[in-house]
Design a protein around this nucleic acid. Structure first.
Length: 206
DNA sequence: AAGCGGATCGTCT
DNA sequence: GACGATCCGCTTG
């Protein structure tokens, strides 16, 4: 048995509204078990998406086959394909019946960097997992393999754990790449961290 | 340093 | 039939 890192986040951690869960997840560890090895990254950037109140959210237009996991119990992976080629990882939150999720946008790669570099086809550490599509590629997370997976189970190949580390300062900005509800301050980052995604759509103030 | 467009396809109108 | 919660490479200044 491999030595486990930190403590698995319980389902109750995801019961709150997404704008509460998103900052809470900063500093937590995203753990991917793959072919007997462990790929590990610290979450440094998240975004909150609500349900029917949030025009930018997939759940906005109601319950469909695609958004089913968003309406299910909290703590499960919602993985979708964007622009036909990239996977993005979300964690469902709020009680069953209410849609809401947190998009994991960037990690600081901690362990398994060589394997991540293989998946990504490059080795610059700040480019391995700094973006929602990038981190899924680095960790080998696909929609087919992981949509609906329980992230709170010790048996899952993707888990979220806490080791007690928390950011000294959190910076809050508008969400990246959304055209609707673009003014809402729902993106949370570890202030000043080198692995936060740059994003072509948002510039830091002066 | 910043801006553009292409790749590529599931989902919803 | 259009449009993305993106990424990358190429162009321009």
């Amino acid at each position: 048995m491999s030595v486990e890192i930190g403590q698995l986040l319980p389902r109750e951690a995801y019961l709150s509204a997404p704008d509460q869960v998103a900052p809470m997840l900063l500093g937590k560890l995203l753990v991917r078990r793959l072919r007997g090895q462990m790929l590990l990254g610290r979450i440094v950037e998240t975004e909150a998406y609500f349900g029917i109140n949030d025009p930018a959210a997939h759940a906005f237009s109601g319950r469909t086959a695609r958004t089913e996991v968003l309406y299910g119990p909290p703590g499960h992976a919602y993985v979708y394909t964007i622009y036909g080629m990239h996977a993005c990882l979300n964690v469902s939150c709020e009680p069953e019946g209410l849609a809401g999720c947190v998009l994991i946008r960037a990690l600081e790669p901690v362990e398994g960097l060589a394997e991540m570099a293989m998946h990504r086809g490059l080795h610059e550490p700040t480019l391995l997992t700094s973006g929602p599509g990038r981190l899924c590629q680095a960790l080998g997370i696909t929609r087919a393999g992981f949509n609906g997976v329980d992230l709170t189970s010790a048996d899952s190949e993707v888990q979220i754990r806490g080791d007690g580390w928390a950011p000294a300062e959190i910076a809050i900005t508008p969400r990246i790449g959304v055209n609707k509800a673009a003014e809402r301050m729902l993106r949370f980052t570890v202030a000043g961290h080198a692995c936060v995604s740059k994003g072509r759509y948002w510039k830091p103030p002066l």
